[in-house]
Design a protein around this nucleic acid. Structure first.
Length: 259
DNA sequence: ATGGTCGTGGGACGA
């Protein structure tokens, strides 16, 4: 089963790129971030015509996450638990019902800049809530994953120019410590676990010719419970998507599970 | 230090 994560940076602007990528890559499940659309305006029928079930958790103009799945989705939950006042649409989870049931969580973790400041405080608080949900997922001892745009550069090797990011909310020591507290609960970070070639990024800024200079960062991640990690067969970053017409600033990352 | 480029929605904000 191929499960992908893709920050599309706006469904309206990206529907053509997303459509061709779905046709080429044929993921069974695609977790989307930054749909930047309310649920009513998401082109649900377009993806249903391709054979996908569609679940969205959107808001006006910003954020927004969605799940596309060729297999049935059950027990959909919208919003990360832990703060009833949080109105930002950054979390959706569901159970993918196949031969092996897999709990999939799609997330768009807050950017947090500028740091310090209220946006950074929101990011750290969100990561504490994420840690709580992550602990519950592990306690269930079932195949489950959390994937999406984490807005976290885990290590210096995950940035082309780490010095540039030293004071950025994506790379501050406190951010990376919060990330490690989650991973070290017992998750497998799929891409790093496969020990792939270095300098493989998932994001290149639109500004200052970042793509042309390969000035990228690796911030889109898959965290797998042990029961999901047992099934892991492959991990790929679809880097080529960044070079296409009207690309997102992120590229897709996907895993293949023996399920 | 600044500005550089996108998307949304139709101005300013977020990244």
């Amino acid at each position: 089963m191929k499960i992908a994560s893709f920050n599309i940076n706006g469904i309206k602007a990206r529907i053509e790129r997303l459509s061709e990528w779905l046709d080429e890559t044929a993921p069974d499940v695609a977790l989307l971030q930054e749909i930047k659309s309310v649920d009513e305006n998401f082109p649900r029928a377009f993806f249903e015509d391709k054979g996908y079930n569609v679940e969205t958790h959107g808001q006006k103009s910003f954020n927004g996450v969605a799940i596309l799945s060729k297999l049935p989705l059950e027990d959909v939950v919208r919003g990360l638990p832990g703060d009833a006042d949080d109105e930002q649409a950054r979390w959706i989870e569901a159970t993918v019902v196949g031969d092996t049931a897999i709990r999939v969580c799609g997330l768009y973790l807050p950017n947090g800049n500028p740091a310090p400041g209220p946006k950074y405080e929101y990011k750290l608080a969100w990561m504490e809530r994420l840690q709580a949900r992550a602990a519950d997922l592990l306690a269930a001892e079932e195949p489950a994953l959390m994937a999406g745009d984490y807005n976290v550069i885990p290590q210096a090797e995950d940035a082309h120019n780490p010095d540039k990011w030293r004071n950025d909310a994506l790379f501050l020591p406190e951010t990376r410590a919060a990330w490690r507290r989650i991973v070290n609960l017992g998750f497998t970070e799929a891409f790093r676990a496969r020990d792939p070639a270095p300098l493989n990024y998932t994001f290149w800024d639109f500004q200052a010719g970042a793509w042309n200079r390969n000035d990228g960062i690796r911030i889109d991640h898959f965290l797998l419970t042990p029961q999901a990690a047992d099934l892991l067969q492959d991990v790929q970053i679809d880097r080529h998507m960044r070079g296409r017409e009207k690309p997102s600033d992120h590229v897709p990352i996907w895993i293949d599970l023996a399920a």
